[in-house]
């Protein structure tokens, strides 16, 4: 405990905890919708797209990489979510195609055109988050807080619409809900969350932040509201625990958070089995 208190004196540790909790909260809220819409893997796909975009920005020597990363990720999210199953290439195949394509293209770009000689370090840092969450400055924390507040506000304001779109798009369309617009909104929010979450767990582990809270929650609860609420609590507690363990034990942040989520999922699974809810 003494060690923890000592580490909490460092501003970057406090920043990491604030940002980590906020990202976990945001990703869990949208995670329930994504899992129910059978888009669990979209986080992984979009994060690979973000990785590819980051590689292009790095090779182009852009000082502001977000100028490329965010629009490209948002565009990909729109393409994947908005078109849905109404295309020749179905949802899961489209995600897989974009995911591996962007990952391969990004790595190729970094190897062929990179201005950095430490390609393995750059790739490792981007894919697994490395220590990114512990190297944030106050501006980045402020931005994350603003984006998180927007994401949570959007979720609360449009909760009923998101619920409609999540469960039955055809019914929602029939009762006058502009499904395509709400899908577009969900796509933009997901893209923003993915880009933010890359700092916390890296490209390869983002899916865990999206699916584990939702799946664990579904082991114990049945209604959309209770699943969403428990999912948010689960995600925040796991991320916080993961970060604290990582800081105290000196383990990589991203993988520690995901490991905690896996353990928590199995606990929820067992509780669900015992209580007969699962």
């Amino acid at each position: 405990m003494e060690k923890l208190i000592e580490y909490l004196q460092f501003p970057f540790v406090r920043y990491a905890i604030i940002v980590g909790v906020l990202i976990a909260l945001c990703s869990s809220l949208l995670g329930v919708t994504l899992v129910l819409k059978r888009y669990s893997f979209i986080g992984d796909g979009l994060s690979h797209v973000a990785f590819g975009a980051m590689a292009i920005a790095a090779c182009a020597n852009l000082t502001n990489e977000m100028v490329i990363i965010l629009p490209v990720t948002i565009l990909s999210a729109i393409l994947l979510l908005k078109t849905g199953n109404n295309t020749k290439i179905k949802g899961d195949a489209a995600i897989a195609m974009i995911s591996v394509g962007a990952l391969a293209f990004g790595y190729l770009m970094m190897n062929v055109f990179s201005t950095s000689s430490n390609v393995s370090g750059d790739v490792c840092s981007t894919l697994f988050g490395s220590m990114s969450i512990l190297t944030l400055d106050s501006e980045e924390v402020t931005l994350c807080v603003i984006l998180s507040v927007i994401v949570v506000a959007v979720f609360i304001i449009f909760y009923n619409r998101i619920f409609d779109v999540t469960f039955d798009e055809n019914f929602a369309r029939a009762v006058g809900t502009k499904v395509s617009k709400y899908n577009l909104m969900i796509a933009i929010v997901i893209a923003v969350i993915i880009v933010l979450a890359m700092n916390l767990v890296g490209s390869l582990l983002i899916s865990a932040l999206v699916i584990f809270p939702a799946l664990s929650s579904m082991r114990l609860f049945k209604s959309f509201k209770s699943v969403t609420l428990f999912s948010a609590i689960f995600s925040v507690i796991c991320s916080l625990s993961g970060m604290l363990i990582s800081i105290l034990a000196g383990t990589p942040v991203g993988s520690t958070i995901v490991a905690v989520q896996v353990v928590a999922f199995f606990i929820c699974f067992i509780i669900g089995k015992i209580t007969g809810r699962s």
Binding site: N64, E65, M66
Partner: peptide, 23 residues
């Protein structure tokens, strides 16, 4: 509200560039 959200999301996207580490 929806239009406002879209505008704010795009504004945040542009703002996020200000925090890039490379700067």
């Amino acid at each position: 509200i929806f239009t406002l959200f879209l505008i704010s999301a795009m504004a945040c996207g542009v703002l996020s560039g200000c925090s890039d580490k490379s700067t």
